[in-house]
């Protein structure tokens, strides 16, 4: 098992490396020049000034030299400074990451806590009106983009209930209730598709398992339906749900970029949004590497969970 985890971690590192290189190159393909963006407002900028700033930011070097320098610094934990204000990228991320992790965790929590009961309910009451309406809700939940949901929430809550989320973000240690209220709506918007996917996957997975022979054996022992489903069917249905969850974490992380901006939450998402606009390459790169690492790590945890759930997978890995 340890060997398996180490091997997976190495693969993960490779993935993060490739992501870094890809994003580094892709960023330079975006039209617009950081130097001209920064100097845009100043009247009478000379070519000399432009060259000097480019040299200051290291942008006059060949592209692959820049990449090499960035990678060499990155492995030592130095992601450079922001082009904007010269702040260390690691410091910026250190401030913003906890906020985004909290938002992501709340979204996942909502998705799981709502998705599992809905999935069980529609499997147990298969083809009832309840199942049909849950199917509708799920398909809608999977299809609706989370940023649109977020916009709808803000708009309609303001219109119908003249209520809007707090404007100024407060950390959980400053004002916990304001913090939770602020994060609740974007977390709902982010977690809806997770909830819907989990509900659908769990429903079909449970239905398949409930018709299997070993479930009949459990019933033949005289077990109650609660035990049949809660102890045996659930555990046998949950592996595909976990894989869905791993993928959904990617959606949620991606969704934070726009939803944090909509709701005015100063997390990584907002940081990346602002930095892309300003072509602040080091900050964007730093953020993307962290997003990539979080995604890889969570999927590793998901994979390890398979082994905890299923002894056959554990066996195959040793």
């Amino acid at each position: 098992m340890t060997e398996y985890v180490i091997r997976r971690l190495l693969y993960g590192l490779l993935v993060v490396f490739l992501v870094t290189v890809f994003v580094f190159l892709a960023l330079r393909l975006i039209p617009g020049d950081v130097v001209r963006l920064q100097l845009a407002d100043a009247p009478g900028v000379t070519e000399e000034q432009v060259d000097r700033l480019a040299a200051e930011l290291g942008l006059n070097q060949p592209l692959f030299t820049q990449l090499g320098t960035f990678l060499a610094d990155a492995v030592r934990g130095d992601f450079g400074q922001s082009f904007q204000d010269g702040e260390q990228v690691t410091t910026l991320i250190g401030e913003r990451l906890p906020i985004t992790l909290q938002l992501g965790a709340m979204a996942v929590l909502f998705g799981v806590l709502a998705g599992i009961p809905l999935g069980v309910l529609s499997a147990v009451r298969r083809n009832s009106w309840l199942d049909q309406s849950l199917r509708l809700v799920s398909v809608a939940g999977i299809s609706i983009p989370n940023f649109w949901l977020g916009l709808l929430m803000v708009t309609y809550l303001a219109l119908l209930f003249t209520w809007s989320p707090p404007l100024v973000y407060q950390g959980p240690t400053e004002d916990l209730s304001s913090n939770l209220v602020h994060l609740a709506l974007p977390a709902l918007a982010l977690g809806t598709s997770t909830m819907a996917s989990i509900a659908r996957m769990l429903r079909s997975s449970l239905l398949e398992v409930l018709h299997s022979n070993f479930i009949r054996t459990v019933r033949a022992k005289g077990a109650s339906e609660l035990r049949v489903i809660g102890k045996h069917a659930m555990r046998n249905s949950v592996v595909p749900v976990f894989s869905i969850l791993g993928l959904q974490v990617g959606h949620i992380l991606g969704g934070t970029v726009i939803l944090e901006s909509i709701f005015g939450i100063p997390g990584m998402g907002m940081l990346i949004f602002e930095s892309v606009q300003m072509r602040d390459y080091p900050v964007v790169l730093g953020c993307v590497v962290v997003y990539g690492a979080v995604f890889v790590l969570i999927n590793l945890i998901v994979d390890v969970c398979y082994g905890v759930i299923d002894p056959r997978i554990r066996y195959a890995r040793t």
């Binding site: 070993f214 046998n236 299923d310 002894p311």
Partner: peptide, 9 residues
Amino acid sequence: MTSLDPLYS
């Protein structure tokens, strides 16, 4: 082959 729950001893 399929009558025992694969996840429990």
